[in-house]
Design a protein around this nucleic acid. Structure first.
Length: 109
DNA sequence: TCGAATGACAGCG
DNA sequence: CGCTGTCATTCGA
């Protein structure tokens, strides 16, 4: 599954945008969709934060908060994992012990 | 459980 | 200008 080859970061953000509300994706999923093995690069791209994607999920920015570890753990978040959990919870994603039910909320590209 | 791999960027020499 | 280290990670031994 190949997309436009951009600055890598834009590809990542583009995929993040495709994640529907109420679902989550994993760094591995994004990396795999981009045909790359740099899982860290995916998260790193978001960490750089393209344009303050730290708003609620209803904004016109990249919902980076829907991307978590392949294990379902939140991993980390620039503004704080708690905020990320809050956003996901607001979308209907139930988080248990800092983990998400990938079986129910994992979105596949 | 620990280390290597992978991509990009910031910092330092 | 070039190299090393770091980072929201993942997989293999």
């Amino acid at each position: 599954m190949v997309f436009i080859n951009m600055a890598f970061d834009e590809d990542v953000w583009e995929l993040c945008r495709k994640i529907p509300r109420g679902k989550v994706s994993t760094y591995k999923g994004l990396a795999d969709a981009l045909d790359t093995k740099a899982y860290q690069a995916v998260g790193n791209a978001m960490n750089r934060n393209p344009r303050g994607a730290w708003t609620t999920s209803g904004s016109d920015v990249v919902p980076c908060h829907r991307v978590i570890n392949s294990d379902g753990k939140i991993g980390g978040f620039a503004i704080g994992v708690e905020k990320k959990i809050g956003l996901l919870s607001r979308e209907g994603v139930v988080i248990k012990d800092n983990k998400v039910d990938l079986k129910k909320y994992l979105f596949r590209f």
